[in-house]
Design a protein around this nucleic acid. Sequence first.
DNA 1: TGATTCCATAACTATAACCTATAGACAAAA
DNA 2: TTTTGTCTATAGGTTATAGTTATGGAATCA
Lengths: 319, 319
Amino acid sequence: MELRHLRYFIAVATAKNFTRAAEAMHVSQPSLSVQIRDLEEELGARLFDRLGRSIALTQAGLVFLEHAERAIRELERGAQVVGEVHGAQRGRLAVGTLATVNSYLIPPVVSRFKQRFPGVHLQVHSQPSMDIVDGLVGDRLDLGLCLLPVSREQLTTVRLFEERLVLIVPKRYPLTQSRLRMRDLGGLPLVLMPTDYCLRKMVEVECARAHVSPHVVLEMTSPEGILQAVEGGAGLSILPELYVRCRQRGPDVRVIDLHEPVPQHSVGLVYKTNRYQNLAAREFGLLCRTIMDEMPAGRLSPGIHPPVLKAGARKQRAS
Amino acid sequence: MELRHLRYFIAVATAKNFTRAAEAMHVSQPSLSVQIRDLEEELGARLFDRLGRSIALTQAGLVFLEHAERAIRELERGAQVVGEVHGAQRGRLAVGTLATVNSYLIPPVVSRFKQRFPGVHLQVHSQPSMDIVDGLVGDRLDLGLCLLPVSREQLTTVRLFEERLVLIVPKRYPLTQSRLRMRDLGGLPLVLMPTDYCLRKMVEVECARAHVSPHVVLEMTSPEGILQAVEGGAGLSILPELYVRCRQRGPDVRVIDLHEPVPQHSVGLVYKTNRYQNLAAREFGLLCRTIMDEMPAGRLSPGIHPPVLKAGARKQRAS
DNA sequence: TGATTCCATAACTATAACCTATAGACAAAA
DNA sequence: TTTTGTCTATAGGTTATAGTTATGGAATCA
């Protein structure tokens, strides 16, 4: 049995006439007759009584018609729902982001996204890079926003923009200049994330390059907590400039640019290479770039680079 | 889209592997791959993520799977129900019978039938031949038991047996012999059915052949009423022998055989020529013949003929 | 790195759905 | 009754397509 049989059968049952049903189905009448006969043979029962001029459903035909129509409706509905999921009127999108990125980039992106895809169930998880990568590999996340590079093979990355790091000092800390060379960090009391965090590794790499070793006096996992600790005089810290500057209000701290070299790292979109991204996922990525483009340049220090990538970099075949 | 696509899709979703799904479907792997690709193209969305070694359903695939499985189940159920209707585990069977036939033939037939087809909704209408014929033509009845011949063109008849008529007289009526010649009916006070009834016409034809005219003193439509009227002394009557003899108990009357000639008529099965008879209908007809065969010959007078037809006479093509 | 597993693609084959033409059945009209 | 019109069924040829085998390439595993 094939859907063709059902479609023809329903057409005949509706038209109560083979010839007109054949016209409606855009096939010849003999074609349709044969298909109905085959269906009847497969079911082992006559579906129509062929009276001379008109035809009528048998009891078997009558009950089968109900089921055939339900099956067809079920598939139409299925195709519709697939279209909706693909066109992202529905579905789920789980995104993992770093806490820092989460607080300056994600809010406007989410706002715009929900406007465009109100039916999509969006989940944003703020978590360390490692967990994001694991989440992507384990199919718990559809999309990630991480520090680059990401090591895993199964994942594809798309660089979005550079994140520059700045030094955060308490308001009354005896450091008056507006910029500081990396090598001058030596000996300063720092509040950083634990060593397994990307941001911490990043800082250590930059310090090593400047031939100084960071003097860590406190470790905290959340950038929010670090900021407040700095405000409370626990020490200085190094955080992404965008994160610090884009905060509407917050701890009362001073920002000192770092240079020689300017410590910065790439932030990018990460997703599983072989996994098909539906419209919602692709749009989320695009929105991240768009929002970064629209970030008021005036609020950024001169060293900041605007987003790097312009065009899409989809590896998936267009469907 | 065809059911093939759904079946293959479900197989792949179940096996999570194209190669093994192809084996399960008894087709080559490329065949199956192409069909899945075509389905994906028609739906406009990827259904599977092809990871290196294994595969996984996409969101779209997941939601489509539900609908596809429901559709398939719906059709399996439909085929099953058709089988039941055809095999007559279910369905309706409306039979029209003459009142006389109804009282001696139908009870055992119905009893046997309900045993064999407990799920079939059986309707037995006791009505005059004319109404049975109209009911068959108008599709209100599936099967009829009538006096033959039946004139209508759209109907096919199958003769079942001969019904012999006998004279019924009150116990104390001054007629002592056990048989009476037709020509001796002249002048006897008769209780018969109205002139539009087959049995009445039958009697009149037989009387005319014997060159006597019936002296009708009372007309009643039901054979039951006629018997009681005879018992009450309203007159004599002519009724089918089987009907009179097969009554378990009833009015206290005497039966006198008629001869020269023996008045008898054929009773047969009638159905609409073009209408497909399902198993229940065919079995009902067969049961009528079987029951007649089993009728205790000892209780019948010598003139009675056993059922005429032995083999089935189906005009419909076997399905 | 090589072996293995697995899906996609290409080129060919075979099945079967399709067409046209025509026969046969029935109902209405002549 | 015969004719005509209107149906569905059947026959034979054509074409579309699901099927095949052979092969390539990507990813995993030893």
